[in-house]
């Protein structure tokens, strides 16, 4: 009996040793999906060289004396003004995808220019005004300039970008852009500085210093992104916790990343940020403002100086009759501490 019990115990013990042990499920993490062109950390692009006459445009007074090739082309040969706009920048120019309607500050300016050009108010569906959406990454290639023609020869995909007469798309006036694309800018119609948008309730954050160790999003290759990289370097240099600048191909994607919790703040033009805030009431635009300011102008081909003078004339009229300020107030009234509309400055 004892032997039997001993054998039984031994068998049971051995069978226990050989029993199959369930393999634990290996730990796995939810994949994080980032937008195309997302950079973490953001990288600095080559510095923009200085500009001798950064913001001087052509005086509308010179229009009477010069030729009017571009204006004749638009008014008489083509019979239409083609304007390139964004369709995703709320307050500036955005489209209701369902109805197709475009609206915003820049749309108002485009309509006024077209009305002045053709000498009468235009209805929203008037065929004489073509409002065309600009593809991301190519809006300034849409102007007919020698530089852009060369670029199209080198990069055939640029041929698919439609050719337009004006680009009104919050284009920051810069000499580099003017020389790279062969552009002429109108006098500035907007002046703005940079701020921070964070989620409401992020009480510790007042400025970039409160964002140490957290991700701040800007558009790749923009001045905003370079400024944030500079702030990070200053913070690291002074031993403070540094922000983590990240960047995306299109600044509008930053709002999506903020909503998804993938970044903690957006550093950009405050007027753009206000457009974001209005889309998501759970965000807040901080009182922080960058020290510098930038100006936006209407971009045109350097082959069309008469058009530049004409557009400047329209903007002057809008300044003097108060319609530019009215449009500015209508669209950006909720933006605290916004800069006033800049005065026109001409080179001749």
């Amino acid at each position: 009996m004892r032997r039997f019990l001993a054998v039984l115990v031994a068998v049971l013990t051995l069978s226990g040793c050989g029993a199959v042990v369930p393999t634990p499920r290996p730990p796995r993490e939810r994949p994080v999906v980032q937008p195309e062109g997302y950079r973490d950390p953001a990288v600095t692009f080559p510095p923009v060289p200085g500009c001798p006459t950064p913001d001087l445009s052509l005086n509308p007074a010179g229009l009477a004396a010069g030729t009017k090739l571009a204006l004749n082309r638009i008014r008489h040969w083509n019979g239409r003004l083609v304007v390139g706009l964004s369709q995703t920048t709320r307050l500036f120019s955005s489209r209701s995808l369902g109805t197709g309607e475009l609206s915003g500050f820049e749309v108002d300016i485009a309509r006024r220019i077209a009305s002045e050009l053709f000498g009468e108010p235009l209805l929203s569906d008037d065929a004489r005004l073509h409002l065309v959406d600009m593809p991301t990454g190519g809006r300034l290639y849409s102007l007919d300039t020698a530089e852009n023609q060369n670029a199209r020869l080198l990069r055939p995909e640029l041929l698919e970008i439609p050719t337009v007469d004006l680009v009104i798309s919050n284009v920051k006036i810069s000499c580099t852009r003017a020389s790279s694309y062969g552009l002429l800018f109108s006098a500035p119609y907007l002046s703005t500085n940079t701020g921070l948008l964070v989620r409401a309730g992020d009480r510790e954050v007042r400025s970039p210093d409160g964002l140490g160790g957290r991700k701040v999003c800007s558009g790749t290759g923009t001045t905003d992104s370079s400024e944030m990289i500079e702030i990070r370097d200053q913070q690291s240099g002074s031993g403070k916790p540094a922000v983590i600048p990240v960047s995306v191909a299109d600044t509008s994607e930053c709002l999506m990343l903020l909503q998804r919790g993938l970044v903690d703040a957006i550093y950009s033009d405050i007027l753009v940020l206000e457009g974001f805030r209005l889309q998501d009431p759970s965000t807040v635009l901080l009182p922080y403002r960058s020290p510098g300011a930038s100006e936006a102008g209407i971009a045109m081909s350097d082959r069309d100086p008469d058009l530049v003078r004409f557009v400047n004339g329209v903007l002057d009229e809008m300044r003097s009759d108060g319609s530019l300020a009215a449009a500015y107030d209508r669209w950006f009234a909720t933006v605290p501490d916004r800069l006033p509309i800049p005065v026109a400055r001409y080179s001749d």
Binding site: P35, E36, T88, R90, L97, D250, S252, M256, Q279
Partner: peptide
């Protein structure tokens, strides 16, 4: 977002389409 005419809807859809394709 697009139903509310919020342009951020386009960013979501663009991201979704990139995820689908890539």
């Amino acid at each position: 977002n697009s139903a509310l005419n919020q342009p951020v809807g386009t960013s979501y859809l663009g991201q979704a389409s990139s995820l689908a394709r890539e």
